[in-house]
Structures are given as structure tokens and as C-alpha cells.
Design a protein around this nucleic acid. Structure first.
Ligand SMILES: [Zn+2]
Ligand SMILES: [Zn+2]
Ligand SMILES: [Zn+2]
Ligand SMILES: [Zn+2]
Lengths: 141, 141
DNA sequence: TGCTAAACGATAATCATTGTCAAAAAGGGT
DNA sequence: ACCCTTTTTGACAATGATTATCGTTTAGCA
């Protein structure tokens, strides 16, 4: 059976206390900085496990996995500031339907989808307008 | 200025002759198998360059970048068989609008989006039904 | 045909992630 | 509380994709 360790709980808590998406490495650093002695491999394992149970959401950016403890228990997507990481959870029923339909139309089954919107949040937009340095837009896929 | 080398052309050609998305490594193998002496680093460079110019599309799966020479010159998305790689290019105006609106509603600017649909194509669905082994559905993001 | 900056290619380096395995500890039963 | 079995941990090695290096090659041009 699955056991409850303080390590798993520490990861859960650390993630809940983080606004945006974070990498395993960064989360591990935060944990260490706050005095935890948790190992890096354990953070990876905990995140993978929490993702499986659906407790946390994951996405890939620049070839690395980022995790976030979302408040919505149901399926949803994300609007993410590519500069500061601020994340908004968004429902997208029209997109859900569209995805289902497009797959069906072409005879595809067991369809799932990856849908994320990246941009500059209001704050970072203002910052950029004031001459601040912000991340470049990535490629649209 | 940007130069035209047979290496870049070889990558372009190899990619055009490939139906689905392929990794740099796999493309390099194909090229070598067909007698080319092109180097791996060069394949990576050519793909990155071709992606910049918009000649090829890229997406990330399982932490690796996959590339494809798409026929549509305009912005579009993909329906991809997670088992055999068969890819269908799809226009998604409703999704484009939705993405724009959702970003605007939350004060986000310079928005772009990642939208991909994965599934099992008709052929692979039949194969699976016949007891064949196919890839598992990944996590939905 | 020469020049020069861009492109190559072999290989070393990087970096996130996973595998290994002995030691630690959670859970359940006594 | 104690013991036993099995899971989980953590330090570290290994992997695998991608990038950096750097001396050599070559495209584009006068
Ligand atoms: Zn921001
Ligand atoms: Zn969805
Ligand atoms: Zn298929
Ligand atoms: Zn689009």
C-alpha cells in the first residue's frame, strides 16, 4: 500500500505554498532553504506520484517538467505568465468539445490534449512598457 | 548572411520525406543510414534554424523535441497518433479566438498557445482492438 | 582564384531525470 | 511496545538529449 511519509507531505505543502509552476529542482532548493533534509530524487518521486493521483498538474516548458498544486479538482487548463509564472486556471469547455470532435472526425480514439496559453500578465506587461526586461515570446505550437 | 549548405538541404529533404514528427536523433540516424555523412550537431542546428524561419513545426513529447515539415504555411495545430506518429494538420479558428479572448480577459498580452491533440489513429485503434500493443494515453494537460 | 565569416563535425560538457542499492521507517499484527 | 515485511528514502552513479568548444571546411562574393 502507499505510505504517508513526511517527505511526500513536505512536497505537497511546498507546492501548495507556491503560486506558479515550479520545477522539481527549484522545489527541492526551496525545501532545502527552509531547513528540510529531503533528497532530490525523493522530490522527483513525490511529484511523479502526486501527478499520477491528479493532486498536482504538470506541464513541460523548455524541455523541463513544471508542477503546480491546482485548486480545481476537475480537468482544466492554464494561462501562464512567461515572465513571472503567475498562473490562472481556466475552464475551456469549447476547447474540450473541439478536441473531442476533431479527434473523432479523423477516426482517432482515446484522445487527450495539451492546451496551454502563455503570455505576459498585466503586471509584467506594465513592467515591460516601463523598460523592464521580460522573457521573449516562445514559438507558437 | 545565412548560407545554403547541402547539410541544411539534406535535413529539409529528409524531414519532408517523413510523415510524422521525428526527433533530431532519429532524423540523424535516417540520414546516416541513407549514406549521408552529416554530423549530429549539424542536424540539431539545422532543425533549430528551420524552426526559427517557420519552415518546420516543433513540439515536445516526453521531454524531447520533435520536428515536422508541415504543408500549411499558416498557423495551425496537430492531431497526432501517439502510437505510429501519423499526423494531421488542423485549423482551429475557434481555438485561436478562445486563446486570444482568454488572455485578454485576464489582462495578458503577447499571448501564444500550445495546442496539440494526441490519440490513436484508426489503424492503430484497430490494431489495439486486435490485441496489438500500443502506447498508453499520457496525462492530459 | 583568394578572403573571410559562417557552418561543420568530432567530441567534451551540461543538465534534467532516472536507476541502484544499502539503510531507514511506515503499517499491521502480536 | 515490539517485530516483521515491504515501501520509501537518499547519496551517488548512469543515462540521454541537447549545447558548447574549437580547429577545420566551405559558401558567397570581389
Ligand atoms: Zn507576470
Ligand atoms: Zn482540456
Ligand atoms: Zn497510428
Ligand atoms: Zn493556434
Amino acid at each position: 500500500m502507499k505510505r504517508n511519509t513526511w517527505q511526500r507531505e513536505a512536497v505537497r505543502t511546498a507546492l501548495t505554498g507556491t503560486e506558479g509552476f515550479v520545477s522539481a529542482q527549484v522545489l527541492h532548493s526551496h525545501l532545502r532553504d527552509t531547513g528540510s533534509s529531503i533528497g532530490l530524487a525523493t522530490v522527483y518521486r513525490a511529484l511523479a506520484s502526486l501527478e499520477e493521483t491528479g493532486e498536482v498538474d504538470a506541464l513541460q516548458q523548455d524541455g523541463e517538467s513544471l508542477y503546480r498544486a491546482c485548486t480545481q479538482g476537475t480537468h482544466h487548463h492554464h494561462l501562464i505568465c512567461r515572465n513571472c509564472g503567475t498562473t490562472v486556471e481556466i475552464s475551456a469547455d469549447p476547447v474540450e468539445q473541439w478536441a473531442r470532435q476533431v479527434a473523432a472526425e479523423h477516426g482517432f480514439t482515446q484522445a487527450n490534449h495539451v492546451v496551454d496559453v502563455f503570455g505576459l500578465c498585466a503586471a509584467c506587461t506594465a513592467l515591460a512598457a516601463a523598460g523592464g526586461q521580460v522573457a521573449e515570446p516562445g514559438r507558437v505550437t
